[in-house]
C-alpha cells in the first residue's frame, strides 16, 4: 500500500509539468481557510452558482485546473480574487480523471489544511449546513480527531428530459433538478482500500438495469484534512493511507456524514454526453454517457412516480442518506 501511495504521489509530481499557470493568487490564501480543488472542462454555465454556493459555505480559496475548455469559462474565473487557475491540454483520462493534477496541487498547497475536492457539478450538503459554515464542521472534525468526511453522491434530476428545462448561469440547479432516489442504494466494502462502495440511484435504475454491477460508484470522500503524504487513488472515491477511507462505523453507530448533490442532469447533459462519448475520456470509457438510454425513457426522463423532491438537509438526514452522528 505504501508503495502504491508513493506511486500516485510520484505520478502527481510528474504530472505537474502538464499544468500551466493562468492565475496564481495562492499568496493571498487566508490563514486557516478551507480550500477547494476543482477540475473543469466547458462548465461555464455552472461556474457562477458553484462559486457563490461555496463562498457562502465559507470556502477560502479555489484551486482550478482547466482541462482545455473552449467556452470562455476560464475568462469568467480569472478575474475572481479567490481563484487560482492552471491550464492543461493533456488527457483527462491519462491524468486519471484529474486526480493526478489535483493531487499535485493539494501536495503543494493543501498540506495541513482542510481541502474540499469536488467537480463543478457537485454541491456539498452536511448537517446544519444552513446555519453552520464549513469551518464549523472542520473545527468539530479536528476536535474529534477525524481527518476525513464521507458523503453519498446523490444524483439529482428534473421531471422530464433534461433538455426541456433551460438553465441560466447563476440559477440554483436544484430548482430544476429537484428530484432524487431516496432509498435504492447498495453498499459493500472494498477489501483492498477499506472504503465503502455505494451503487444505486437513478443511473443504476435506468442506465444499468441489466448490469447493476457496472453502475457508477456513489461513495465520495471530498473533505480531507490534507497531509503531503496523502493521495487520492481514484477520483475522490478513495484515498491512501487506507485509514482515511474509514468514514463509516462498523459497530452499529452512525458517523457524521453528508451528501454531494450532483447537478449532472441539466439541459447540457445531452451535448456533454455526446461529446464525452466521442472523446471516450470518462470513466468506463464513457459507457454511462449513452444518452440514448435516457431518450428511451420517454417524457419523464429519469423521473418516476417514486422520486423524492428535495427540500433540505434535514430531509436527507431523516431519509438516512446522511447522518448528524454525534454532532448536535
Amino acid at each position: 500500500m505504501r508503495v502504491e501511495r508513493r506511486r500516485w504521489q510520484v505520478r502527481a509530481i510528474r504530472k505537474r509539468r502538464e499544468l500551466e499557470v493562468v492565475a496564481d493568487r495562492t499568496s493571498s490564501v487566508p490563514n486557516g481557510a478551507v480550500l477547494a480543488f476543482v477540475t473543469i472542462r466547458n462548465e461555464k454555465p455552472r461556474l457562477p452558482y458553484f462559486l457563490s454556493y461555496y463562498r457562502r459555505l465559507g470556502i477560502g480559496h479555489f484551486f482550478v485546473v482547466d482541462n482545455g475548455s473552449d467556452d470562455g469559462g476560464i475568462d469568467l474565473l480569472s478575474s475572481e480574487p479567490d481563484v487560482s487557475i492552471w491550464r492543461t491540454e493533456a488527457s483527462y483520462r491519462k491524468s486519471r480523471f484529474g486526480t493526478d493534477w489535483l493531487n499535485w496541487l493539494r501536495f503543494r498547497h493543501g498540506h495541513g489544511r482542510w481541502t474540499l475536492t469536488v467537480d463543478p457539478d457537485e454541491f456539498l450538503i452536511y448537517p446544519f449546513c444552513d446555519s453552520r459554515p464549513v469551518a464549523a464542521l472542520c473545527d468539530w472534525l479536528d476536535q474529534s480527531g477525524i481527518r476525513s468526511f464521507g458523503t453519498l453522491l446523490l444524483d439529482m434530476y428534473p421531471k422530464g428530459q433534461p433538455s426541456e428545462h433551460p438553465y441560466e448561469p447563476g440559477d440554483d440547479p436544484f430548482r430544476i433538478a429537484a428530484w432524487f432516489d431516496a432509498g435504492n442504494y447498495q453498499f459493500s466494502k472494498n477489501p483492498k482500500y477499506g472504503n465503502l462502495w455505494i451503487q444505486g440511484g437513478p443511473r443504476a435504475r435506468v442506465f444499468f438495469e441489466g448490469a447493476p454491477e457496472a453502475a457508477p460508484s456513489l461513495n465520495k470522500i471530498p473533505l480531507v484534512r490534507w497531509d503531503r503524504r496523502f493521495a487520492y487513488v481514484s477520483s475522490t472515491h478513495m484515498l491512501l493511507p487506507r485509514g482515511l477511507n474509514q468514514v463509516y462505523d462498523e459497530a452499529g453507530g452512525e458517523k457524521l456524514s453528508g451528501c454531494l448533490l450532483h447537478a449532472k442532469f441539466l439541459n447540457d447533459f445531452d451535448a456533454k454526453a455526446a461529446e464525452e462519448t466521442h472523446r471516450r475520456e470518462h470513466f468506463a470509457r464513457g459507457r454511462e454517457y449513452d444518452a440514448y438510454h435516457l431518450k428511451t425513457q420517454g417524457e419523464n426522463g429519469l423521473w418516476c412516480e417514486w422520486s423524492e423532491r428535495y427540500i433540505n438537509w434535514r430531509q436527507l438526514e431523516q431519509l438516512g442518506l446522511m447522518s448528524k452522528g454525534n454532532w448536535a
Binding site: 442504494y185 465503502l196 455505494i198 463509516y248 462505523d249 452499529g252 453507530g253 458517523k255 442518506l321 446522511m322
Partner: peptide
C-alpha cells in the same frame, strides 16, 4: 439503516 457512514 445502512448508509455511507453506517455499515455494521
Amino acid at each position: 439503516l445502512v448508509m455511507a457512514s453506517r455499515f455494521p
